[in-house]
Amino acid sequence: MLTAETLPRHELIGLRVRVVESSDPTLVGCEGTVVMETTNILTVRAGSRTRQVPKAVVTFEFALPDGEYVTVDGERLLARPARRTERTGGSQWQ
Rank of each mutant, 00 (worst) to 15 (best):
S23N: 09
G29K: 03
G29W: 05
S48Y: 06
D66I: 01
A63P: 01
G47A: 07
E11W: 05
S48N: 14
L64K: 06
M1S: 15
E31F: 07
P54N: 10
V35S: 12
V70D: 04
R16C: 04
Y69G: 03
M36N: 15
E21S: 14
L27R: 04
T50D: 15
A79K: 00
V20T: 12
T85S: 12
P8D: 00
T38F: 04
E21C: 08
V53G: 00
L15V: 04
P65W: 03
W93A: 05
T3Q: 10
G74M: 02
V35M: 11
V19N: 00
A56L: 10
V57G: 04
V34W: 02
I41G: 00
R18F: 05
R80C: 02
T43W: 09
T50M: 14
L7V: 01
L64N: 09
R76L: 09
D66P: 02
M1N: 10
A79D: 10
L64Y: 03
P65A: 07
E75G: 11
T71A: 15
D24V: 10
R83Y: 03
R84Y: 03
R84D: 05
S48F: 06
V17A: 08
V34G: 11
L64V: 05
R18W: 02
A46S: 15
A82N: 07
R51D: 08
P65K: 04
V34H: 09
Y69A: 09
E68M: 08
R16H: 11
V70Y: 04
G89E: 07
A56T: 07
V20G: 06
D73N: 14
V44A: 10
